[in-house]
Amino acid sequence: MTRGYRSQLAALLKRDLKVALRRRSDVINPLLFLFMVISLFPVAIGPGPDILARIAPGVIWVAALLASLLGLERLFRDDYQDGTLEQLVLLPCPLPLAVLAKILVHWLLTGLPLVLIAPLLALLLNLPLSALPVLLITLLLGTPVLSAVGAVGAALTVSLQRGGAVLSLLVLPLFIPLLIFATAAVESAVFGAPVFGQLLLLASFSILTLTLTPFAVAAAVKVSVN
């Protein structure tokens, strides 16, 4: 039986990846947006390297947050409209598991590219090189949380006509604890303070959301599909 689930999940992953990759702009646009937001800050605040280094962790994280909101609305929208979501509910494989596959694909296409271009962003914002590994670890641990918590909001608002505004209203407050821990870790790395504890906290946060949110997303999908 578990073997059956596994092949279903593999098929789901493959399908979601294929569908998402057909629409390259959905993958690239958030990254472009991220770059633009990042480049707005030096223009607005002034190009002083000290100031930029000081605000870099926060700016990168806020930009990552906003960029992850961009594609979020699409997470379940197309599947909802063409009826795929109903088929997903009817699958013999448990819905939280299927939803976890969708979250994973979303992370692969938005979270992972973000982690990959983060060194470039850090360079642009003059973040000290010593803090870069910590920034990458926080992004690696934190972006799955963005995808998972965002999926709850996306599933709740999928049947709404204009869900985007409500979606960001719902999801952003839930991102704040993550933002606090992640930026605190990077900032203490900038000042050379120990960061291990904060990274552990972030990791536990990540594990907790990844295990619990699929159930909330599944419940929300069921409510939305009716």
């Binding site: 918590v149 709850v152 709740l156 608002t157 049947s159 719902l170 407050p173 839930l174 604890p177 949110t213 909330a216 419940a219 929300a220 409510v223 939305s224 009716n226």
Partner: peptide
């Protein structure tokens, strides 16, 4: 009813706060 259930799920998720 859909609204109430959706709001309920959000309320439960927000309990972490």
């Amino acid at each position: 009813r859909t609204g109430a259930k959706a709001a309920g799920i959000l309320a439960l998720v927000g309990v972490v706060n």
